[in-house]
Design a protein around this nucleic acid. Structure first.
Length: 492
RNA sequence: GGCCCCAUCGUCUAGUGGCCUAGGACACCACCCUCUCAAGGUGGCGGCACGGGUUCGAAUCCCGUUGGGGCUGCCA
């Protein structure tokens, strides 16, 4: 794997603990979007869509796309996972030296800023310490008859100490979130509990770290999945308490499985890498992901990236969850595969026909023969991973015979004799696909069967399967010797 | 349970009060093409969740019902 050791660029322009201005750092008037994944070992297709939405907007508005890795949870900071994210983003066209791309930054490197901001919040009275354990909170919740933290330590005047968490003092009132895709959403602050800013060990929590980083990085637009909507009033409260106007929010619908549940790594196939490894090509994935929850103008949905960038607007994003449909993805991929020139298609196939899991021995692969058959397989695959099984008979010493297909093809009483006739004729005729076709046609006629039926036993005997690329072109490429040997092998 | 979001063919969507007899795409079915299978072409099946309003007129606006979903951690 390529090494993408994150280049760190984390010198914060502002120290929130000391200088707290009411204006964020200068942005030269440009919008700043951000994508802030937490490393989990693979790249989620939902994350890919969110990243793509942010990226399209950054390109359209000549804005900046900031990548920030949210690695503050110790369990989530394996360096190779970060490399995986960067690789995956590059695959879908994000990054790779484009001037609109900035980062990656690492949240863990800003922890001092997060803590400083927390302390400022405490000093300003926006936060207070609490020494209750999770168990005690649960106890109280049981007694209270309602779940969650009840604000027990609000006025106890506790200071910092071992095991003391810092909680945000949620004010009375209503918090209004203006969301570009959802409109105005109101939250009664009475339903928001005093959430934790700093853990008992003094480390910052996501809600805080996320906001402080966004301020530090002058983020103007937060475009993320809908699951974050309930966090938004809390974060907006932190923005205000810190003295800043909140960013523009946009919460896009989640991606769901067939059961209409949020795509999860436990039950669903969600890794972008997995689709890539099965032979989905990037333009197809990008186009499919962009049209999940949004549609370009006009009747076509297979459209160039330029058109997408040109037309994409958050205001037009759908409000309801979208089912990630593998069948439709495969269809998009097939369309994109067919748009490739033969040369491009051959190049795209290369990893699948030269890797270790290929059924033939590596030395027997012939790139020239593959190039010759390629245009015929191009219209027959949805995923590139289907390619090897479609051409394996050309590079295998003996074809992998599908027993059922063979039994069926040899069932007609004329089948064996037809094969014998074929061996006789093919031993001497010109070895060109059109000649082979004509000859088989004639032999078929002599047995009273049309070419469609006559080709079946030949196809199975030579390629091992009942379906595949056009037979006579295949035979021409395979050569006379191997063809005859395989036919005879079946007759014996 | 509480808070919040959502609701057009099976699925992804177009539709922003009259162009809607609701358009496209995937899937499915049929036919054409054809050496198998595809690809391609043609056609078909199939939807505004329900009930009230508002309006001359509602898929589009309002209310309610029902049904989905998200969140509810000293994870992010």
């Amino acid at each position: 794997m390529r090494s993408h050791l994150p280049t760190v660029a984390t010198s914060s322009p502002t120290n929130l603990g000391i200088a707290m201005n009411s204006m964020p750092p200068a942005t030269n008037g440009k919008f700043r979007y951000r994508f802030a994944p937490s490393p989990t070992g693979f790249f989620h297709v939902g994350g890919a869509r969110t990243a793509l939405y942010n990226w399209a907007l950054a390109l359209k508005q000549d804005a900046t796309f900031v990548l920030r890795i949210e690695d503050t949870d110790e369990a989530r900071n394996k360096p190779e996972w970060t490399a995986g994210i960067i690789d995956a983003l590059a695959w879908i066209g994000i990054g790779t030296g484009d001037p609109h791309f900035e980062g990656p930054y690492f949240q863990s490197q800003n922890s001092e800023e997060h803590v400083a901001a927390a302390h400022r919040l405490y000093e300003a009275g926006h936060a207070y310490y609490c020494d209750l354990t999770s168990e005690q909170i649960q106890e109280r919740a049981k007694v209270n008859g309602k779940p969650g933290y009840d604000g027990f330590s609000r006025d106890r005047g506790l200071g910092p100490g071992p095991g003391h968490v810092l909680r945000f003092r949620v004010p009375e009132g209503v918090t209004v979130v203006d969301d570009l895709v959802r409109g105005r959403v109101e939250f009664d602050n009475g339903t928001i509990e005093d959430f934790v800013l700093l853990r008992g060990n003094g480390t910052p929590m996501f809600l805080l770290a996320n906001v402080v980083d966004d301020i530090l990085m002058s983020i103007t637009h937060v475009v993320r999945a809908e699951e974050h909507l309930p966090n938004t009033p809390k974060q907006q409260l932190i923005w205000s308490a810190l003295g800043y106007a909140p960013p523009v929010w946009a919460h896009v619908p989640v991606l769901v499985n067939e059961q209409r549940k949020k795509l999860s790594k436990r039950r669903d196939k969600v890794a972008l890498e997995q689709y890539r490894d099965e032979g989905v090509i990037a333009p197809a994935m990008i186009n499919y992901l962009m049209t999940l929850g949004w549609a370009p103008a006009g009747d076509a949905e297979i459209v160039p990236w330029e058109k997408i960038v040109n037309e994409f607007r958050l205001e037009d994003v759908n409000h309801s969850p979208a089912f990630f449909d593998e069948k439709k993805l495969a269809s998009f991929n097939g369309d994109y595969l067919r748009m490739l020139t033969t040369e491009q298609f051959v190049t795209a196939c290369s990893p699948w026909v030269t890797n270790d899991s290929v059924p033939w021995s590596r030395g027997d692969f012939d790139a020239r023969i593959f190039s010759a058959i390629a245009p015929l397989v191009q219209t027959r695959v949805g995923y590139l991973s289907e390619v090897p099984s479609m051409v394996d008979f050309l590079f295998l010493d003996q074809p992998l015979i599908d027993a059922d297909a063979l039994a069926k093809a040899m069932k007609p009483e004329w089948a064996s004799q037809l094969l014998r006739d074929v061996v006789g004729v093919f031993a001497a005729c010109d070895w060109q696909h059109d000649v082979l076709k004509t000859e088989l046609e004639k032999i078929g006629e002599s047995h009273g069967v049309k070419l469609g039926k006559a080709q079946a036993p030949v196809r199975v005997a030579v390629t091992g399967r009942s379906v595949g690329p056009p037979l006579f072109e295949s035979l021409e490429l395979l050569g006379r010797d191997k063809t005859l040997a395989r036919l005879k092998a079946i007759l014996d």
